[in-house]
Write a protein that binds this DNA or RNA. Structure first.
Lengths: 191, 191
DNA sequence: CCCATTTTGGATCGTTCAGTCCATAACGTG
DNA sequence: CACGTTATGGACTGAACGATCCAAAATGGG
């Protein structure tokens, strides 16, 4: 009868996610991962085949969680589109204080984008899902007259996510909500 | 009589700048720096006291060059403000093809921001210079009626740089100019 | 109680890391 | 030609890296 595992795999991936999110892939050592997860290196290598495999798992976990949360906001047809966009942008201005600074996806694109095509593919597909959802929501808002029909819905959606990216970068150097509020307001003028 | 140095210090810093800009601080080894600069490790350690010292020099060089170029555009009073902002944003959409992807400053903020306060201070000061210059330019444009006087000039300037940051992130995953053009157009609606 | 299987702790491996060391090279002066 | 000084090439150091190994632990069934 095998020895029962004493840790929760999802909990370990979550802890690793936060370590990678904070420091980045290269600067997070296997010892850091042991410390963050509370596991020995044999347990880590027994469960995940490599540091890189754990990183991929962590990134997918982040994408699943945060994309689901964002889609929920985007697709809430009971809320005016302007308020939905405001809420999305505000998550970058006033994030959950227990979370590391910025966005794990943005950090990874910047750190690994030029050399890890597989990771970029994964994140591009995720981005496409969110972009399509927001474009659809904007088109629906254009149909009801909430948003100017002359505007390109897909371009507007790309614009919102670009601003979001910029806000996430600002969060990495601890820009204050006060200084970023004007950015949200300026962005919302398109809605 | 001492042996004459056979390399150009600025050229070496420039080469190192491109290596760090491409891969980031952690993922650029001292061997990578030797390869990029064409120098031996004794020459590098003889001239720069450490890898980190060379990184700081490279970052300052980037900041000096690109800030000077940006200020030149921002402060050209012969050009309408809208066109000046368009030019700034366009440098991220269609950068010099020989340059690494994205922006060395943005990459560094994301990679090192949470743990290197000195680097953040340096980059915040640089950011403040550009922000002040653009705010002053926007205020001048408001005085001539080019820009709506009701708008907060500093907020508008912060907004432009945030969008620029987002465009730089998109460049790290090779987003096409076509997809980013709509972002520039949407941003310019505030001008 | 023994067994087979899986998990765990932590020592260890081979490689790479940033940085140092040492012998040699390149000068112009005396 | 020798000297003193600085630069250079590349071998080397000690530490850290990601990953592997091995002994011990933890189980339930027979």
């Amino acid at each position: 009868m095998p020895r029962p595992r004493t840790f929760d795999e999802d909990g370990a991936v979550d802890a690793a996610m936060r370590a990678f999110w904070t420091a980045g892939y290269e600067a997070t050592s296997t010892q850091d991962l042991c410390d963050a997860t509370g596991l020995g290196r044999s347990s880590i290598y027994n469960t995940f085949s490599s540091k890189r495999d754990l990183f991929d798992r962590a990134l997918r976990r982040y994408v699943d969680q945060f994309t689901a949360a964002q889609l929920e906001v985007i697709q809430d047809a009971d809320v005016p589109i302007r308020e939905r966009v405001r809420r999305i942008l505000w998550t970058a201005v006033e994030p959950d204080p227990v979370d590391p600074a910025g966005c794990f996806v943005i950090n990874t694109i910047v750190e690994l984008g030029p050399k890890e095509a597989e990771i970029v593919d994964l994140l591009d597909r995720d981005h496409e899902v969110k972009l399509t959802a927001l474009t659809t929501a904007i088109e629906a808002a254009q149909a009801t007259g909430e948003v100017d029909s002359e505007q390109d819905a897909a371009g507007l959606a790309t614009y919102v996510f670009t601003v979001l990216g910029g806000l996430r970068v600002a969060a990495r150097r601890n820009a204050t909500p006060e200084s970023q509020q004007a950015v949200v307001e300026a962005t919302l003028r398109s809605f």
